[in-house]
Design a protein around this nucleic acid. Sequence first.
DNA 1: ACCCAGGGCGTTG
DNA 2: CAACGCCATGGG
Length: 227
Amino acid sequence: MTTERKLLKIYTTLLREYGQRNWWPAETSFEVILGAILTQNVSWKNVETAIHNLKEVNLLDPEKLYRCEIDTIAPLIKSSRYYNQKAKKIKNFMDFFYSDYHGSLEKMSLEDHSLLRTKLLKIKGLGEETVDSILLYSCNKPVFVVDAYTKRIFSRFGLIEETATYGETQHFFIKNLPQDIVLFNDFHAQIVHLGNTICKTQPQCNQCPIRIIDGKLKCRYPLENHS
DNA sequence: ACCCAGGGCGTTG
DNA sequence: CAACGCCATGGG
């Protein structure tokens, strides 16, 4: 069985088990960016509170957020942990967003995706996962997002090394999957859902619809076309 | 009281 | 390039 078939079988199983996750949880593409920064190393629940607070005072509007002081933002996003740093990160992004794209997500999304990735990575406070989340879920670019769950779960499946870097893990998925943006979108969402529910820290999860038995991949559902 | 959550950066060895 | 410390909330 090729690696590509294994990955698709895993994805098919997750899709059957949990249904389309239709990510990212946000009302606008701009909100996706804020969420991507705010969710760094914190549970999504904490981010929801922060986003809610920003919304209350109309700061989900890019123009207003851009003109806002860091000291105004920080207390509103307190629930997101590391709130002082994150307020700065948001500000750093907004400065870039306005200086390079006049605050237009449409313009930013027209940028060549590998160039945009390079530019976003230069913003202090935005690392690979945050940038790739923005590229995929806000700008609609075909990049595969890797997070702690991805490494944990897929190294447990024996498909990647435990010590695999972000880049190595990402390359593994890109190389072994059809370059389908909808697939990239939902696959990552499924992985997070799996990580959030039954595959937390246990070495073996009894409820998992995907198992490794004698080194072989056993899925609850067969491979099927997802188109 | 503990533990950990959808990271990233700066500093050291 | 590791392996750390730092940031510093909230829910289980």
